[in-house]
Design a protein around this nucleic acid. Sequence first.
DNA 1: GTCCTTTCTTGATTTGAATCAATTCCGTCT
DNA 2: AGACGGAATTGATTCAAATCAAGAAAGGAC
Lengths: 251, 251
Amino acid sequence: MSDKVVELSKIKVACKDCSLFQLCLPMGLESDDLEKLDVIIKRRRPVKRGEDLFRVGDGFRSIYAVRSGSIKTFSPTQDGQEQVTGFHLTGELLGLDAISNNYHPCTATALETTSVCEIPFERLEELGHQIPSLQRQLFRVMSREIFTEENHTLLLGKRNAEERLAAFLLSVSNRFKSRGFSPNEYNLSMSRNDIGNYLGLAVETVSRMFTRFQESGLLTVERKHVVIHDLDRLHDMAGSSRSSGNTRSSG
Amino acid sequence: MSDKVVELSKIKVACKDCSLFQLCLPMGLESDDLEKLDVIIKRRRPVKRGEDLFRVGDGFRSIYAVRSGSIKTFSPTQDGQEQVTGFHLTGELLGLDAISNNYHPCTATALETTSVCEIPFERLEELGHQIPSLQRQLFRVMSREIFTEENHTLLLGKRNAEERLAAFLLSVSNRFKSRGFSPNEYNLSMSRNDIGNYLGLAVETVSRMFTRFQESGLLTVERKHVVIHDLDRLHDMAGSSRSSGNTRSSG
DNA sequence: GTCCTTTCTTGATTTGAATCAATTCCGTCT
DNA sequence: AGACGGAATTGATTCAAATCAAGAAAGGAC
């Protein structure tokens, strides 16, 4: 029994630091509830860069929380192209879009070595019946995902290339900030190609925008590494009044 | 008591026909469960064309199901513009994006005289604890919304004007079809402006595409009224492999 | 009915981003 | 270390859709 206590405290720390942040902490689960949740979570070996966590069409069993690293999700389109639908950073969930169809509508590929918690959804659902605050939190998380997607829509709707990249960089900035990382300096784990795809822009355009931003003194960029010198100006450029373009992680 | 029975049977028919279709029917609620659900639902007087069901920033209390008519949702952007984020037809839900923030991130305006059921979310949540199949259905519905938003993203990402309008018309077609209406002939309740805004296109471009579609014999359009002559071709033009562009209502 | 507003359509022109086409830069492999 | 290959940058050109600019058609008000 004392083993269990040790185990539990270890989990608490892990959740606080990363993956289940949005799922556990904000709703203040009791220790024994937290333990119940922990029991159903599967730890997997880390996914290496380029490996898939799941593929489009795979049967839906679990949702996933990123403990560390990052993952991109993308869907194939008729003409054989891919459309990147999201980037999932540390502490963010993925797989929520599979619940209704019972299969994954997208493929999830690791952008770097990434460790995830796998949460079997059926068991999570059962647990929701027992723990009202968990159920409520699940609704919150799903609603947030809808909101995030709407923001992505807003971005693609009427924004020009400059506004799109600005909003994207600001979004990443906010997400890192809410995890306790620097909002001014970070590494982008995704390629220019992925960014362009996500933003509905050609790679070349993304590259040109980075150059323009740098020349205007807004930021310094070298390959993956970005240092933002003027977050306020970036915010102004992003233009969308709605939550700076993305709030996947502000909960 | 006999009043209640009458009331209940009336509701059953109503739900089957329209608004709570996705929320009730697929999970086969027992009569008494259905009654419990019915008790918490508020019927409102119909919303007239141009009137708002809720406004951006309004506190979140309820989600809404469209019984008949149609509603557009849109968010303001920094530059005073509006971005249409969705159209909600008969049988579809709205307001799900407000759960996480506790306020509505968009305004909902009736496109025609529209009647809705208001479902207080707190009470729905409580009911979910009692009725597992209701809870499960709620997750489904929310997941579907995420999926729908992703599809919208896909549409705006890399598709040209022709593909966007084709996908939009096909989406409307599918949604009408799943309600038992004709997929080949319908009235668009929204203006060209709204369509353009939703699709990230200028009004003039939408108009030109309609003209082009008509000239190619794909469809006949007169003002709001659309008759589609070749659904297969429309499907090909839409181009997105994912569910023909939209499946808000196929559940 | 007529007037007035709004919505829609059509045409001419402009423009921002895509595409095409080279290089250059890095990381990786041997 | 050198060589290869993918990623990123930069420049030149093209093109699809936005914008600008009128009209035409529909819907409402009176």
